[in-house]
């Protein structure tokens, strides 16, 4: 299994990244190196082994459904790259 430049561009679109040709080329190399190393995993027979999803088996538990004061508008919008007094401002979605 080897990664091509087209695979990298396809993945970049899924990951919402806009790669330059240079970046894409060096990712082809790195990803083939790293994914090649990961083929080591194929040596292990895991047919009877269930996947491990959580390291702790205690479960999440319950807590009272109690409301806490939320962030106020000013704080919530403080880090926005663009906002007015009430909302985040985003580019027009519909032309």
């Amino acid at each position: 299994m080897s990664v091509t430049i087209d695979d990298v561009k396809y993945m970049a679109n899924l990951a919402r990244l806009q790669l330059s040709e240079d970046e894409a080329a060096s990712l082809v190399r790195d990803m083939n190196d790293i994914l090649g190393y990961m083929e080591l995993l194929e040596q292990v027979d895991t047919s009877d082994i269930p996947p491990l999803e959580h390291v702790s088996d205690t479960g999440a538990g319950f807590r009272p459904d109690k409301a806490h004061p939320p962030l106020d508008h000013e704080e919530a919008l403080k880090n926005a790259p663009d906002a007015d007094s009430d909302y985040f401002r985003v580019p027009r979605v519909i032309d």
Binding site: M38, L41, T46, I49, P51, L52
Partner: peptide, 11 residues
């Protein structure tokens, strides 16, 4: 990849 790695995590 992902499923396999989760099984190996259990091992």
């Amino acid at each position: 990849y992902y499923g396999k790695a989760q099984r190996i995590r259990r091992l």
